[in-house]
Structure formats: C-alpha cells, structure tokens
C-alpha cells in the first residue's frame, strides 16, 4: 500500500507516493535527496535529525512522513538558499561551534527553537535546551557560545 503525501520543504512542494512506514528523515534524505539532515541513532536520542516542522523543532526520525503531509518543513538546506549564511549559521562559524559538523544541522534547529521562545537565554538555559542534541566533538562549550552570539545578534 502506498500513500500520497504533499509536503512543503524549504518553500517547495513535493508530492510523493510513499510507504506508510516511511520516516520523515528518510523522506527528506532518500525521497527528495536533501541529505543535509543527519541520522545519528536509532533510538531518538541524538538530535542529528532535528528539523523545523511547521516552525516547531522535531526529531525527523520520530515522525512519519505521512504525519508531515500538508505541513511545511525547514531543513538545513533551506537556511542559506542564496549561499549567504544566516545569522545563526554565522554565529556557529564565528564561535567555532562545530568540528566534524555531523551534529550541526540538528544543533542549529534546536538553537533556533530556543531563540524563538527565549531571545536572551543564559548559558544554563542554552545547555538545558540542547540536552536532546548530542555532539561528540565540541564538548558543547563553543555551541553555547554560538547560541549566545546569535542571541546577541538578534536571532529570534
């Protein structure tokens, strides 16, 4: 059995026939070839797959593509469409908030979600907000600094 879905991703609508069990993360990576969203686990722990679903940060491995039918998704590819980094990406760059970069797309969206609700978070609040996103390279410290810098630059 196949399902038809229509999902808007980064402003473009994709109509696809999918298997009902297809996860959103596999829809993004395999069905429409947006591989910027990463998979780091199989137990919904790592947050590498975090995207915005109708402006809410979700782990795309915990969500069926069918559930995103009719919704709008933002992935990492959607943040700098003309190649110019947005202020949040810029902050991660300036503060060395990434090393291997594998956790980065998910971190960016977890940070974005925090800044939407709290434009001036304390380091503790940032650390708390990022607890569902694992990074093995940075020790998180420069990620915290990146989010602080983004907040200071007015990212909301």
């Amino acid at each position: 059995m196949k399902l038809s879905v229509s999902i808007q991703v980064n402003g473009r609508t994709y109509d696809r026939e999918i298997e009902p069990r297809l996860l959103l993360v596999h829809f993004l990576r395999d069905s429409i070839a947006l591989t910027g969203t990463k998979i780091g686990c199989d137990t919904s722990q790592c947050g590498a797959c975090t995207v915005l679903l109708d402006d809410v940060a979700v782990k795309a491995c915990t969500c069926l593509a069918a559930q995103a039918d009719g919704c709008s998704v933002t992935t990492i590819e959607g943040l700098a469409p003309d190649g110019r980094l947005n202020a949040l990406q810029e902050a991660f760059w300036t503060k060395h908030g990434l090393q291997c970069g594998f956790c980065t797309p998910g971190m960016i969206f977890a940070a974005q979600a925090l800044l939407r609700v709290n434009g001036n978070p304390s380091p503790e609040q940032i650390r708390h907000a990022l607890e569902g996103n694992l990074c093995r390279c940075t020790g998180y410290q420069n990620i915290v600094r990146s989010v602080q810098a983004a907040a200071a630059a007015g990212v909301r």
Partner: peptide, 16 residues
C-alpha cells in the same frame, strides 16, 4: 581565524 571547512558543513552541502 574562522574555519574554511565550515560553510559547507553549516549549509548541509557537505557530503558524508
């Protein structure tokens, strides 16, 4: 200085 490898990693254009 900022890293040269970062723009591709920050935009999802890097390929693993």
């Amino acid at each position: 200085i900022r890293r040269r490898e970062d723009p591709r990693l920050l935009t999802g254009t890097a390929r693993y």
